[in-house]
Nucleic acid binder design. Structure first.
Lengths: 260, 260
DNA sequence: GTTCAAAAAACGAACGATCGTGTTTTTAGC
DNA sequence: GCTAAAAACACGATCGTTCGTTTTTTGAAC
């Protein structure tokens, strides 16, 4: 019986969803009409309704597809990366670990901006109905994925005592927020320094805090930034003793492109 | 001459703008129509056009009013509060300072959610054209406002060496993000603990980092959170020696209401 | 491999509703 | 009573969606 080949039907669905995603993320749900979507997908407006009963259903399908693709690839990628990194011998939560994490987060934001933009669309026009669950107990999820590795950290004599999942979650949120502001909010070096410099400092603060009792901070010169855009050169912290010996510990964070 | 009294005209303007603000922040710009605004403002649709030439002009006026009111009141409030706190003798950047800052930021988010929601509307529907400047070189602005106080911190022997404006900006962004996620993104205790507990831990991490060389962390019991909603009781850190002596240092952060 | 009828899919004009806005009439302030 | 503001109404455009028609696809018969 002449039902459309499943391959072709799925391709059409994906084509329409991709066009809708591109428009929803650029002008919102109510700011996008079906004719634009049809034109961008190179189909007729009526054709869309053979795949999606309403505009709202199309949106929900777009959200589902975007979430499963972005999350399945990147959440898993970040977690497996973390697991791999934390399995190396020695202390977890080193400068190298966090710099690598920052690189992964940066990729997540810069390679999949649509995912995040769609989340903001959902916040504005749907009260974040479709994304709210991604913020439910972030530390617990880190703990579930990295149970053994994180427990090893908390057993270390120099560990601060905070639940490692909580600690990782806060650093994760901090770095994620940095790149989201840079990429989606037009924050042009909003912390007054280039990406790698800013991330370096954030990690340094996360590792050892504002105050250091042992005078290790003495080797860091004052690196105040005066005037916009004048980023002082990267100055490495002497407290990188937590690093794995022999590893260079170069920041894995590239410079951000000036504009998308 | 029958020109409307300025007092009355301004009142009408504000009434319309307030209605528009309430709708824009709940359903976006394109998701709101002039008839809804008119109904909410208890005027006719035509009457709006005696005050605003177009819907876009109304939006821009709403943004201007919302920004000037929220920013003038709260940015100045936070800064003056910081200045006052940092003028107290002793070290700046104490637990008490940051807990107070967190309280101010929390008020900023929970008392003026419309300001932040409107920013997200602008991100989604106007590419953040009207709010992008609020993220331009945040550390520099802290440095300008708190020049003397922050310099005093950087001169302290135990200071980490990072530019104090940068350090304050990162802590500010971190706490702000926490409350924004809680209030606007539906993050129901997204860090797995009540507000004051989470903020307490964030501040503790900001002050002394993940690793502590002097064993001060030994007094903090493991406070891992297992299972959603099961927040362990607040356990005070022994490293509060940075606090002003005699001050209780109680967290100034209330619990968040469960839902708006 | 070609043909063919049936059925699904694609099309695009059209529909009713609603959009932002202009016009006309009524109201109300000075 | 003059005049600007407010209300009521109207207009063209555009919205999401439907529908009648055309085109394409399909599996089987040949």
């Amino acid at each position: 019986m002449p039902k459309l080949a499943q391959k072709r039907a799925e391709q059409n669905r994906r084509q329409i969803e991709q066009a809708a995603l591109g428009l929803f993320t650029r002008q919102g749900f109510h700011g996008t009409n079906m004719r634009e979507i049809a034109e961008r997908a190179q189909v007729s407006t009526g054709a869309i309704y053979t795949y999606f009963p309403t505009k709202g259903a199309l949106y929900e399908s777009v959200v589902r597809s975007c979430r499963t693709s972005a999350l399945h690839s990147y959440e898993k990628r970040i977690r497996s990366w973390l697991a791999r990194e934390f399995d190396t011998p020695g202390e977890p939560f080193t400068q190298r670990h966090l710099a690598g994490l920052a690189g992964e987060i940066r990729s997540f934001v810069y390679d999949h901006p649509d995912y995040w933009k769609l989340m903001y669309v959902d916040v504005v026009e749907f009260n974040n109905r479709h994304f709210a669950d991604s913020f439910h107990n972030v530390p617990e999820r880190f703990n579930q994925t990295l149970d053994a590795q994180l427990k090893r950290a908390s057993g270390h004599p120099a560990w601060c005592g905070i639940d490692p999942g909580f600690a990782l979650a806060t650093v994760y949120m901090q770095i994620l927020t940095y790149f989201l502001v840079e990429r989606l909010f037009g924050g042009n070096q909003h912390l007054g320094a280039a990406d790698d410099t800013a991330i370096q400092r954030i990690i340094d603060l996360a590792l050892h805090g504002l105050w250091r009792k042992n005078g290790a901070a003495a080797t860091i010169r004052e690196s105040a930034v005066h005037g916009p855009g004048v980023a002082s050169s990267v100055q490495r912290s002497a407290v990188e003793s937590n690093q794995q010996p022999g590893k260079p510990g170069k920041a894995a964070v590239r410079n951000a492109p000036s504009e998308r």
